[in-house]
């Protein structure tokens, strides 16, 4: 039994989410092969070969895979995947985009966003915005699974010495093309991999006031997130959204500022190790999940916090 893990990367560096996915693969058990599909992605393959627990790295280096277009990538993964017991990818926007396409090509059901491996066929995944946990069992010939990173501790990025094998065949569906990308350039860590996150909600009142949070975040080396209410109100862009319909995070420390704690937000952050809530409404539901709650005006508390860090 061997497991194929799709590497998450940008052609230059291997994304941390891959390490969590390999961790899930280790719990399933079996030889772990990592597929690096991209263009000019040799450095990623080298990095993947050093990941602890990886037996083999397959590299498909071709322009057709440069931007991870699912129409091209899914054909490749499905062709390779039929020889594996499991095909895994991180539940990132990229993994979510391509993996169901792979499953359909293999004519198997997919299991999305597992947070726990019970055995090689049985997994746990949250449903209803995390308000229920389903234990599901698959009898599919190839089990196609997306992995929620926060459910699995990352394996070490070094220590492995996998062989690297090039894949010659190229699959280009020719029905889609990459036009462009606007990726926010930031010195701050990515939300899904940050150890500390400072998030703002509707209580921030406007986008400019998020500067207060950036001040605290920079002192803590933290990422800045937002609730759906803040996104819907137009304070900040959607890629900052933490919650059921945004990013699922589980940092060491999560500081919720001016966030009431709607179910849909809690679903995205309640697995954080330590939760701090700052809110002027002491009845706010966020306090029911917070380890440390501070009832008060955020416009006084946040600058004070920044000063004391």
């Amino acid at each position: 039994m061997a497991i194929l893990v799709l590497a998450e990367h940008n052609n230059a560096a291997l994304a941390a989410a891959t390490l969590n996915t390999v961790s899930a693969a280790q719990q399933i058990g079996g030889d772990i092969h990592v597929l690096v599909a991209g263009a000019g992605c040799a450095a990623v393959a080298t990095a993947a070969a050093q990941v602890a627990g990886v037996a083999k790295v397959l590299v498909a280096d071709h322009a057709a895979y440069a931007n991870q277009l699912p129409e091209n990538l899914a054909l490749l993964i499905a062709e390779l995947g039929k020889n594996y017991s499991h095909v895994l990818a991180a539940a990132t926007t990229n993994g979510k985009n391509v993996l169901p396409r792979v499953a359909a090509l293999l004519d198997v059901d997919q299991i999305s966003e597992i947070v726990k491996v019970i055995d090689a066929d049985t997994f746990q995944r949250p449903i209803y915005a995390g308000n229920a946990i389903a234990t599901v069992q698959s009898s599919a010939a190839v089990k196609v699974i997306s992995v929620r990173g926060t459910g699995f501790d990352a394996v070490a990025a070094s220590g492995g010495s996998a062989s690297i094998e090039a894949i010659a065949s190229v699959t280009d569906a020719g029905i889609s093309a990459f036009v462009g990308e606007e990726v926010a350039k930031s010195e701050r860590p990515e939300l899904t991999s940050a150890k500390v996150i400072v998030s703002g909600g509707r209580g921030m009142q406007n986008g400019d006031n998020f500067q207060l949070l950036y001040g605290v975040a920079d002192k803590l080396g933290a990422a800045v997130g937002a609730s759906r209410a803040a996104v819907d109100a137009g304070f900040v862009p959607n890629d900052m959204q933490v919650g059921q319909t945004g990013k699922i995070v589980a940092p060491q420390l999560y500081i919720a500022v001016g966030i009431s704690g709607a179910i849909q937000h809690l679903a995205g952050m309640k697995d954080s190790k330590v939760i701090v809530a700052i809110n002027k409404d002491e009845e706010a539901p966020i306090f029911q999940v917070a380890d440390y709650g501070l009832v008060g005006d955020l416009f006084e508390a946040v600058p004070e916090l920044e000063a004391q860090l």
């Binding site: 277009l69 926007t93 029905i175 889609s176 093309a177 990459f178 036009v179 990515e190 890629d239």
Partner: peptide, 14 residues
């Protein structure tokens, strides 16, 4: 135009 981790991506589809 698609919402991806970290920003936006635009693709042209047939």
């Amino acid at each position: 135009t698609r919402e991806i981790d970290g920003g936006l991506q635009t693709v042209a589809l047939k």
